[in-house]
Design a protein around this nucleic acid. Structure first.
Length: 676
RNA sequence: GGCGAGGUAGCUCAGCUGGUUAGAGCGCAUGAUUCAUAAUCAUGAGGUCGGCGGUUCAAGCCCGCCUCUCGCUACCA
């Protein structure tokens, strides 16, 4: 690190198909912002880069759904995201976007250079083509009948009814989602980056030269490298994105994962004409802050791209975080299961730092963590208010009460004073050490520790008693408390910038350089301002509102799930009559070993006694199932499942939440009775 | 069943390349205190570090097997 002259800090580009939520913040933006503010505070040269990732298929689909252009979609979210980052105090030097002209030019030139150097492989494959719209269709744009479950609205990559992942060519009767016409298979040419060619180099670079990377990052890279790399397509047949700058590549764009990381470069270029100083000088230290889902792209693919290009530096570290859950469930944009930053800023005005604090104190640095509103409240009330805010308030109030707001002159310091004063630089050192190694949780804990120390010092020295007997001693004590407070205002600034400024307002001081803190930073005789509250308690009702909001989301999601699947195509009576459904009785049941869902049932069908394997083991135990009457399709072709021949199918009703219930006659019926 | 991640005090989590009596915060109990947003400070109770076996002078950390949780995936006739 000592050899670097400047830092380039990038943050994963949020995808512009939705606003930013606490998961993004905890994983990427808050730690990155803390780190950058810390570097700046130390006087280091740093560029802090962010921007919206605005290309890719999901945005085109969303646009189509809403009947607007992709540009409309990205415009909408880009500005929401940009504004909420600003309001939240994420101190980007630039927040750019990949639909910008600079980006198109730069990523296009980047591709062209690799192309001219012969770094790509050309490959032709068959893909569906919609002749009517004159376009190749991404898998998502093909709709057809699922070969597994018969759902006739399955997508080319996945059937959402049965969850199976598919190839577009698997679909029965595929149609184009754009025009409804029947697509044809047609040859299409694409360019591939031969990652296998970089495997040896990547292994050396990461596995040998960057053993210091976080274990989650290092481990994932290792597993990728060990399993071998394959050439990866870097172009797509799509009309939204950066056009492939080659003759004969009309209707093709750069794959979003090719152009997005170049967005870091173009954003830097957007920021300063001297952008090459950041990207091409080996004395620049590049750090990528990302979430764990982006590790492969930032540690394998982008470095391979940069290496292939040849003139760029590589990341020095990629401190990826794990994921943050919300109230026990995975955060999901599509399910609206999130705390949205722009909504938080509305609901909790001027409480940016509370969220910054909570997300840092509970950051998913080594494993997935859970955000709960109760924890949010507890951390605010018990830590920010009770420890930090309270210490500041005590100090300010006492100073006003005894010395009219003038910083008193210290007398001689005793052993305990010296010990406390000695702790300040020690804590600062630990904060630095943790920040330097991306341990933000621990660093923040150390900061709070300084406030704790202040509280303890007050409790031990009891100036409110001494004021009656030894007023001179009180001057020393309060002076020390004020020094701690002033140190805190700088020490906490990377984490809690708004409160740090507020605190400086109370103390009536300006910003203090990082290398000045550790000792006396507020002068004797200085007049402080009126005391106020650094943090406010958050009451239960405020928290309950947020919990209720989430419960409402949960309810809405359930209702959405209840949306009834549309009817299938009509069939003739003859078709129906082919089904032989009978009432049967379960006489024996046992779970099939080594499966999650399968249960082996022995059924008295009236006709015979037979074995049926059914996927109900997650909903019923074998005990509660025995003796039940059920509906059974008896003339279904037998099939062997897990080594057991299943001779029929039990009819089950599936609820919106996925739970199953038997279809049972409402009074007892003789086994073998027909169901028609 | 496959892949990935994980199981450390009541709760949320730390534990660096294995090394003395396993930590923090919250919560709880008891005590002290009143300058402070009923805030603070001290002390204490609480853990067979998921289980079993192995390697080692030494394992929460390494290896094997098992088990449970979460995510993806498969099975769901």
């Amino acid at each position: 690190m000592a050899n670097f002259k400047r830092s380039l800090v990038t943050t994963a580009l949020p995808y512009a198909n939705g606003p930013v939520h606490i998961g993004h913040l905890a994983g990427v933006y808050v730690p990155a912002d803390i780190y950058v503010r810390y570097l700046r505070k130390k006087g280091e040269e740093v560029a802090f880069i962010g921007g919206s990732d605005e290309h890719g298929v999901p945005i085109t689909i969303k646009a189509q759904k809403e009947g607007v252009t992709p540009q409309d979609i990205v415009d909408r979210y880009h500005y929401i995201i940009k504004k909420s980052f600003e309001d939240f105090g994420i101190s980007f030097d630039i927040y750019s976007r990949t639909s910008s002209k600079v980006h198109h030019e730069l990523s296009s030139a980047f591709f062209r250079k690799l192309y001219d150097k012969g770094e790509f492989i050309e490959k032709t494959t068959q893909q569906f083509y919609d002749a009517q719209s004159g376009r190749f269709l991404a898998d998502r744009y093909i709709i057809g009948t699922c070969p597994r479950c018969g759902n006739d609205h399955a997508y080319g990559d996945q059937c959402e009814a049965c969850g199976t992942s598919l190839n577009a060519t698997d679909l029965i009767n595929p149609v184009s989602a754009l025009t409804g016409s029947k697509p044809e298979l047609k040859d299409t040419k694409h360019w591939y980056l031969p990652l296998d060619k970089y495997e040896g180099w990547l292994k050396r670079w990461i596995l040998e030269e960057h053993k210091e990377w976080k274990s989650n990052v290092y481990g994932q890279c290792k597993s990728w490298l060990d399993s071998g790399l394959n050439p990866r397509a870097v172009t797509r047949d799509l009309d939204w994105g950066v056009p492939v700058p080659i003759d004969g590549a009309e209707g093709k764009v750069l794959y979003v994962w090719f152009d997005a990381p170049i967005g870091y470069i173009s954003a830097t270029k957007d920021l300063t004409p001297e952008w090459e100083r950041y990207w091409k000088d080996p004395e620049t230290r590049m750090i990528h802050f990302i979430g764990k889902d982006n590790i492969v792209f930032h540690c394998i693919i982008f470095p391979a791209m940069l290496k292939a290009e040849g003139t760029y530096i590589l990341p020095d570290n990629v401190p990826a975080n794990e994921f943050l859950n919300l109230e026990g469930d995975k955060i999901s944009t599509s399910r609206n299961w999130a705390v949205w930053l722009h909504e938080y800023l509305e609901d909790f005005r001027d409480k940016q730092d509370v969220l910054r604090y909570v997300l840092t104190a509970n950051a998913p640095e080594t494993k997935d963590n859970d955000f709960t509103w109760k924890d949010f409240q507890a951390r605010n009330n018990n830590e920010l208010v009770a420890i930090y805010g309270n210490f500041i308030n005590r100090t300010l109030v006492l100073t006003h009460k005894y010395y009219n707001g003038i910083v008193p002159e210290p007398g001689e310091t005793d052993a305990y004073d010296k010990e406390v004063l000695g702790e300040i630089p020690a804590i600062i050192e630990r904060v630095e050490k943790n920040l330097d190694t991306f341990h933000f949780r621990e660093a923040l804990k150390e900061c709070v520790g300084l406030a704790r120390l202040g509280n303890k010092y007050l409790a031990d020295t009891e100036p409110w008693k001494l004021i009656k007997t030894d007023e001179k001693r009180v001057r020393t004590i309060l002076n020390i408390c004020l020094q701690i407070a002033a140190n805190l205002s700088t020490l906490t600034e990377p984490f809690l910038p708004f409160s740090a400024e507020k605190l400086r307002g109370f103390l009536n001081i300006g910003p203090i350089d990082w290398d000045k803190i550790g000792g006396e930073v507020i002068a004797t005789g200085h007049r402080i301002n009126e005391a106020g509250l650094l943090f406010e308690k958050i009451e239960d009702d405020k928290i309950q509102q947020q919990i209720d909001k989430l419960l409402a989301t949960k309810k809405a999601n359930q209702q959405e799930q209840t949306q009834v699947v549309p009817a299938k195509a009509n069939i003739s009576y003859d078709d129906f009559a082919k089904l032989d459904i009978r009432v049967g009785k379960i006489v024996a049941a046992e779970k099939v070993v080594k499966t999650q869902k399968l249960m082996k049932l022995t059924i008295d069908t009236g006709i015979d006694t037979r074995t049926v394997v059914s996927g109900i083991a997650e909903h019923y135990t074998s005990e509660e199932v025995i003796g039940r009457q059920v509906s059974i399709l008896v003339n279904l072709e037998p099939k062997v499942l897990k080594g057991i021949e299943s001779q029929g199918m039990i009819l089950m009703a599936e609820n919106a939440d996925g739970t199953l219930s038997f279809v049972t006659p409402d009074k007892s019926v003789k086994p073998g009775s027909e169901i028609r």
